[in-house]
């Protein structure tokens, strides 16, 4: 069992590394379209988003629809840091690293603040309230104005002029226009490293005392309580770690865009992350990675087929659903692909 788990985890890391090597080879051979190149960092972002959401949905068993909100918080705080420091700290990998750490930390704080009231709810109610919190975060960011001048930071929720910036001042966050000209520090290598770190944290957490506690609450809350497991603590732990990882992903995302606006983080993004998780198999980490990559890259790859594009996309969605959930398909996988695929979550 232990060995099996370890091997399964190693395969997951292996897939990510193999993908990295292949893409690097393709870039070196100059056979990757600029469209695909532009997609590399978002792919990593979505993989991290899906894996971290799977920690809440699959491992902790709570339906959260506000994941984009944490990504938003991470994106803005990370980009804010880089904007402020870009003239002082010019070594971009370090700047990106610090920005991602800040994004993760701020998102974690939001995870705790939102988690404490929200995790008292269950099921549909939890889903609705997280959805609402995600939208609140987005809308608050949308009216946020921050500028800097010799006297320090100026905040407002009115407009740029309410900041009363001195002549030498400059805007950092300007409401609906968001943050523009964030240093473009994000690289595919940085993205892959973030994916690997995320996998390391999530996979090791699952296979530890804390992970066992989190999954026992998912499987039977009353029994978990009866053996002395602190429900609130462990639900909050899963929620917060998930939020922090989404925040780091958001910071990476922000450093790949020339203009960062809050409206990118609406519920569509949350739902998209949930689609990755559900189609990849709830609780199946490797599945989340594959689903996120496939469903992000597919629309671009199929661009040549123009009008058939969405048709093929939806067929792929259905096929993935069957592959992961239909009993017959599971049986077939068990028989033929048992070595490579997990047939049930967390086995």
């Amino acid at each position: 069992m232990k060995k099996q788990k370890l091997r399964s985890n190693l395969i997951t890391y292996g897939i990510v590394l193999a993908a990295y090597v292949i893409v690097q080879a393709l870039i070196a051979a100059d056979s990757l379209s600029s469209m695909m190149k532009g997609l590399l960092v978002p792919l990593c972002v979505y993989v991290v988003l899906a894996v971290s959401l799977n920690l809440v949905v699959g491992i902790s068993g709570e339906l959260s629809l506000g994941h984009a909100g944490f990504m938003c918080v991470g994106a803005f705080s990370g980009a804010f840091f880089s904007k402020c420091i870009q003239d002082v700290l010019t070594f971009s990998p370090l700047r990106l690293l610090i920005a991602m750490l800040i994004g993760a930390a701020v998102a974690a704080v939001f995870g705790i603040l939102i988690g404490i009231p929200v995790l008292r709810l269950k099921g549909d109610y939890l889903a609705i309230v997280t959805l609402a919190f995600g939208e609140i975060i987005k809308n608050v960011m949308n009216i946020f104005y921050v500028g800097i001048d010799g006297a320090g930071f100026h905040f407002s929720t009115q407009d740029e002029f309410a900041l009363n910036l001195a002549a030498d001042g400059r805007m950092i966050i300007s409401g609906p226009t968001g943050i523009t000209q964030t240093p473009k520090d994000a690289t595919f290598t940085a993205g892959i490293i973030l994916v690997l770190i995320t996998l390391f944290i999530v996979l090791n957490l699952i296979d530890s005392r804390d992970g066992r506690a989190i999954m026992s609450i998912r499987d039977n809350r009353i029994a978990a309580e009866s053996i002395g497991i602190n429900i609130t603590k462990y639900k909050l732990m899963a929620f917060t770690i998930s939020a922090a990882l989404a925040g780091a992903a958001g910071a990476l995302y922000a450093h790949n865009l020339s203009s960062l606006t809050a409206k990118k983080f609406d519920y569509n993004t949350s739902i998209l992350a949930l689609v990755f998780v559900v189609l990849g198999g709830i609780g199946n980490i490797r599945g989340s990675i594959i689903a996120a990559v496939l469903l992000t890259a597919l629309p671009e790859l199929l661009r040549g087929l123009s009008s058939y594009r969405m048709l093929i996309y939806s067929i792929v969605l259905i096929v993935m659903m069957l592959f992961n959930w239909a009993p017959k398909a599971l049986e077939w996988r068990e028989r033929n692909l048992g070595r490579f695929f997990k047939t049930s979550p967390n086995k």
């Binding site: 066992r212 999954m215 026992s216 499987d219 039977n220 029994a223 009866s226 732990m237 979550p345 967390n346």
Partner: peptide, 25 residues
Amino acid sequence: IRLFKGLSVLDNVKAGLHNHYRYST
């Protein structure tokens, strides 16, 4: 019966040992 159905038999018992063997996250 209220077992942790998604966990292995061993992990069910290990969950019961939760408060007796500790290490940090």
